[in-house]
Write a protein that binds this DNA or RNA. Structure first.
Length: 255
DNA sequence: ATGGTCGGGAACCGA
């Protein structure tokens, strides 16, 4: 089974890129982030024509997540517990053939300091609590999405230019590292312990041709999922297409 | 050069 995460940065603008990638990469399950549309306006029919059902947690103009699956899928929930007042669409979970798949769009958190950074850290604390609940299930669990965290300086090309950014702050990294300490496996980093590899290149300042990237899209695996991992990868060629997203798909295969 | 580029949606906000 092939599971992927892809921040499309606007499904309206990105639908052609998404469809051609689905046809070539043939994932079984995909978590999408930043669809930036309300659920009713999500192009589910065009995606269903390729054999994928959609679970959509949309939001007009901002955020918005979805799970696509060509295998039978049932929704578990679409809120990250812990804050009744949080109305941002950043979370959806489903179960697919015994695998628990969570799709997340973690807050960016800039500028630092400020209320947006406080929201990010609070959201990460809520995520840790939900991850601990899912851990108890002992079924394979995948936490997939745009984490908006560069775990270490190996995960960005220009640490000097990002020193004040929310994506590299010690508070953000500590919370990510706590999940690893709890036993979650960062699939890409487990396969390539020392290789620089990126999943995002800013639209500005020629970041893509200069390969000034960040690795912020992650698949975190529970032990039962990590035991079944046969391969994983980053489809970086997707970034070179016309009207590309600033993120590319990241995927993992489970036996 | 204190910038640069996108998406959404109709003037800016978010990234």
């Amino acid at each position: 089974m092939k599971f992927a995460t892809f921040n499309v940065n606007g499904i309206g603008a990105r639908l052609p890129r998404l469809l051609e990638w689905l046809e070539s990469a043939k994932p079984d399950v995909v978590g999408l982030q930043e669809i930036k549309t309300e659920s009713e306006k999500f192009p589910a029919a065009a995606i269903e024509a390729l054999g994928y059902q959609s679970l959509i947690h949309g939001q007009k103009g901002f955020n918005g997540v979805a799970i696509l699956s060509r295998l039978p899928m049932e929704e578990v929930q679409r809120t990250l517990p812990g804050d009744e007042e949080d109305v941002q669409s950043r979370w959806i979970e489903a179960r697919i053939e015994g695998v628990h798949f969570a799709c997340l769009y973690l807050p960016n958190g800039n500028p630092v300091p400020g209320p947006k950074f406080d929201y990010k850290l609070g959201w990460m604390d809520r995520l840790a609590a939900r991850a601990a609940e899912l851990w108890e299930q002992e079924t394979p669990v995948i936490l997939a999405g745009d984490w908006n965290v560069c775990p270490t300086d190996l995960d960005l090309a220009r640490p000097d230019m990002m020193a004040g950014d929310a994506l590299v702050q010690p508070e953000s990294r500590a919370r990510f590292r706590m999940l690893e300490a709890a036993g979650w496996t960062d699939a890409i980093r487990a396969q390539r312990p020392h290789a620089p590899c990126y999943s995002y290149w800013d639209y500005q300042a020629g970041a893509w041709p200069k390969n000034w990237g960040l690795r912020i899209d992650h698949l975190m695996l529970s032990p039962a999922a990590a035991d079944r991992m046969t391969d994983c990868g980053i489809d970086r060629e997707v970034r070179g297409a016309e009207r590309a997203s600033d993120h590319v798909p990241v995927w993992v295969e489970l036996a």
